[in-house]
Design a protein around this nucleic acid. Structure first.
Length: 183
DNA sequence: GGTGCGATTGCA
DNA sequence: GCAATCGCACCA
């Protein structure tokens, strides 16, 4: 399946977030095995004014990848035990990224629902911080488009500290397709 | 050098 | 409802 190129990421962050749904997250392990899963839930963190964003207080060693041009990963470690994977968006100098919160579990994984579980399922840690999303270890493929009727927007999770930005509908979720009725 | 806390999860 | 667990941002 076709890979997404850097142009996909170097756009408005909310557009990229919406467009990421249904795309296929791909991760090549050291032994050559490739894990794949469609993205089901993401959140946008858009610009220096977004109080929920790590970039809100300016550039630091940790959030530096957010300030780079789109098309790389931003991976951080939280709560002393979980990694979170972001896709960096927009142009160089404008800090923005999309947090990948859930995907279909790749083969062999129990769950990739939740940002910490997603990184665990795909074996992602800080060694991939700043990695190109067009590189050999981590990339996205086109996948199947998700129609608007299957997308729900909500406020972001876990950002109670973000003032007026708490309620912004920057979370995008794929609504599960209704199963065929049984008969 | 010390302190507080987090873009979460799992278990009571 | 809350403990786990530690890197890092911030202050001194």
């Amino acid at each position: 399946m076709k890979r997404l190129g850097v142009r996909f990421y170097r756009r408005d962050t909310l557009e990229v977030a919406r467009d990421l749904l249904g795309r296929v997250l791909c991760r090549r392990l050291a032994d050559g095995m490739v894990l794949r899963g469609r993205l089901l839930e993401v959140e946008a963190y858009d610009g220096p004014d977004d109080r929920a964003s790590h970039a809100h207080r300016g550039r630091t060693p940790r959030n530096a990848p957010m300030f780079e041009a789109g098309g790389i990963a931003y991976v951080y470690f939280v709560y002393g035990m979980h990694h979170c994977l972001n896709v960096v968006t927009g142009g160089k100098g404008y800090p923005a990224a999309v947090l990948l919160r859930a995907a279909e579990p790749p083969e062999g994984a129990v769950s990739a629902a939740g940002p910490g579980r997603l990184t665990r399922a795909f074996r992602i840690d800080r060694s991939l911080d700043g990695a190109r999303l067009t590189g050999p270890d981590l990339w996205l493929e086109e996948g199947a488009p998700v129609p608007d009727r299957s997308v729900r927007r909500t406020p972001r999770i876990g950002v109670h500290y973000a003032g007026a930005w708490v309620s912004k509908p920057y979370r995008y979720v794929v609504i599960p397709e209704r199963k065929e009725s049984r008969r």
